[in-house]
C-alpha cells in the first residue's frame, strides 16, 4: 500500500469518529424536540414559560414552569456569587503567587474536587449541611436555595479554577516583565496586566462553570428542597428545572402531556446551556489575546 493511501485511510477513519459524535448529538437534539414540542398542542409557549403553577398530575393539569426557571436561575446566580471569586482568586494564587511546591500540592486537590461524584455532594448537602445551616441561621428548613448554591459552588469551583489558571498561565512572560520594568509592584501587575490579558479565558471559565451549575441535577434534587415556587429569600426552597425532570420522568406515563412537558423542560434547559456556550465561544473569540501587542 502506498503511504498516501494510508494517510487517506487515517483521515477518513478520524472523520468517521468525529461524525459519530456529531450524529449522536444531533439525534439526541432531534429526539428532544420531537418528544417536547407536542406539549404545545395543549398549551401555548407563553402559558408554559410564564405560567406560575406546576401541577402536572392534576385534572386539569397546570404546566407553568416560571417557578422552575426562577429556581434554576437563582440557584445558578447565587452559586456564581460564591464560586467565581473563589475560583478566579484561587487560580491567580496558583498561577502567580504560590511557590511551585505549594502549587504542586494545591492544584491536584482542587482538581480532585472536580471528580467528586455529584450524588456524594448532594448527599453531603442533605445530611450534613442542611441541619448545620438550619441551626446556624435559625431558619425553618435547611434544604433550600442557599444550601443547593453552596453545593453547586463547590462543584463549579474546580472548573472555573483550572480553566482560569490555564488562561493566566498562558499570559506571555514579556508582558509581566515589562510591567515590572516600569516599576509596578507584583499586585499592580496582577491586577492591571495579568488579569486583563487573560480576561477572555477567565470569562470562558466562568461561563462554563455556571453552565455546569445550571445543568447539575443530583445536587439540586437532593439539597434544594423542591418547592415549585418563585423564591423570595435565599433561604426559600426551590425546584430547579433538572430536578423536576429527574424526579418526575420515572412516573410520567409514556407520551402523556406530563411526559411531553418534561421533555419541553429539557428543551428549555438545552437552550439555556446552548446560549451559555455561545457566549463563552464569542468571548473567547472576540477578546482573544493575540501576541503581546494587543493589550
Amino acid at each position: 500500500m502506498k503511504r498516501q493511501q494510508i494517510d487517506k485511510g487515517v483521515q477518513s477513519g478520524f472523520l468517521l469518529v468525529a461524525l459519530f459524535s456529531i450524529t449522536a448529538l444531533s439525534l439526541i437534539i432531534i429526539f428532544l424536540f420531537m418528544e417536547g414540542l407536542p406539549i404545545l398542542e395543549h398549551i401555548s409557549i407563553k402559558e408554559f414559560i410564564l405560567g406560575k403553577y406546576w401541577y402536572p398530575t392534576d385534572d386539569p393539569a397546570d404546566f407553568g414552569i416560571l417557578a422552575l426557571i426562577a429556581g434554576s436561575v437563582c440557584v445558578t446566580l447565587l452559586s456564581g456569587l460564591m464560586s467565581i471569586p473563589l475560583g478566579v482568586m484561587t487560580a491567580v494564587y496558583l498561577a502567580e503567587i504560590a511557590s511551585p511546591r505549594v502549587a504542586e500540592i494545591v492544584k491536584p486537590i482542587v482538581e480532585l474536587m472536580a471528580s467528586m461524584p455529584s450524588v456524594v455532594i448532594g448527599f453531603f448537602g442533605m445530611v450534613v449541611v442542611a441541619p448545620f445551616i438550619q441551626k446556624l441561621f435559625d431558619i425553618p428548613v435547611g434544604l433550600n436555595m442557599f444550601n443547593a448554591s453552596l453545593m453547586l459552588a463547590f462543584m463549579s469551583i474546580p472548573t472555573i479554577c483550572s480553566l482560569s489558571e490555564d488562561a493566566i498561565f498562558s499570559v506571555p512572560r514579556a508582558l509581566k516583565e515589562a510591567s515590572f520594568a516600569l516599576g509596578a509592584t507584583h499586585f499592580e501587575t496582577i491586577l492591571k496586566v495579568i488579569i486583563p490579558a487573560s480576561l477572555s479565558g477567565i470569562c470562558t471559565a466562568v461561563i462554563l462553570g455556571l453552565s455546569r451549575a445550571l445543568g447539575e441535577t443530583m445536587v439540586v434534587l437532593m439539597a434544594a428542597g423542591g418547592a415549585a415556587m418563585i423564591p423570595t429569600s435565599i433561604f426559600d426552597p426551590v425546584r430547579p428545572l433538572p430536578a423536576s425532570i429527574a424526579a418526575e420522568m420515572g412516573e410520567a406515563p409514556f407520551r402523556s402531556e406530563h411526559y411531553h412537558a418534561l421533555f419541553a423542560i429539557g428543551i428549555v434547559l438545552f437552550v439555556f446551556t446552548f446560549i451559555f456556550n455561545l457566549i463563552a465561544d464569542y468571548i473567547s473569540y472576540k477578546f482573544r489575546q493575540a501576541g503581546e501587542a494587543s493589550l
Binding site: K52, M126, Q134, P140, V141, L143, L221, G226, M229, R239
Partner: peptide, 26 residues
C-alpha cells in the same frame, strides 16, 4: 385540592424520613 407550591417535595419515602428527622418544624 392543591398542596401549596411552597411545600418541599422529596422524591421518596426515605427522603421524607430524612428531611423530617432533620427539620424540627417539619
Amino acid at each position: 385540592e392543591r398542596v401549596i407550591p411552597g411545600a418541599l417535595t422529596v422524591p421518596s419515602n426515605g427522603g421524607i424520613v430524612q428531611a423530617v428527622a432533620n427539620t424540627p418544624g417539619a
